Computed example of a mutant assay.
Amino acid sequence: MKKAPTIRDVAAAAGVSVSVVSRVLNPDSGPVAPAKREQVLSVISDLGYRPRAAARELSAGHALTVGLVVTDLANPFFAQLADRVVWEARSHGVQVVVMTTQEDPHLEAESLDTLLDRSVGGVIATPTGGNIEKWDRLRDLGVNVVFVDRAIAELGDVDVVSIENSDSARRATDHLIALGHERIGLVTGPASTSTGRSRIGGYRAALESASIDIDPILVRDVPFRGDGGGDAVGSLLALPEPPTGLIVANTAQVQSSVRRLVQMGVRIPDDLSVIVFDDNPWTELTSPPLSVIRQPIGMLAVHSLELVLGRMQGRLPAGARTIEVKADFVPRSSCAAPARSATSKSATR
Rank of each mutant, 00 (worst) to 15 (best):
K2C: 02
V10H: 09
V18W: 08
V21R: 05
S22N: 15
D28K: 14
P34Q: 11
V43Q: 01
G48P: 05
Y49S: 06
V69R: 07
F78L: 11
D83I: 00
E88W: 08
R90C: 04
V96D: 08
T100C: 12
E108D: 10
A109F: 05
S119T: 10
V120H: 04
I124F: 01
P127R: 03
I132R: 09
D136E: 14
D140A: 13
L141S: 11
N144K: 13
V145Q: 02
V148F: 04
G156F: 01
A169D: 05
A169P: 01
E182Y: 05
E182Q: 15
I184N: 02
L186R: 01
T188V: 14
G189R: 00
A191W: 00
S192W: 00
T193L: 14
T195E: 00
R197G: 06
S198T: 05
I200R: 12
D213A: 15
I217V: 15
R220L: 08
V222N: 04
V222E: 03
G234F: 07
S235M: 09
P242D: 02
T244M: 04
N250E: 10
Q253N: 12
R259L: 09
M264N: 04
R267T: 07
L272S: 02
V276E: 00
S291P: 07
R294N: 07
H303A: 15
S304Q: 10
P317E: 13
A318F: 03
A320I: 08
T322P: 09
E324M: 12
C335L: 05
A339R: 15
A339S: 15
A339C: 10
R340A: 15
S344C: 02
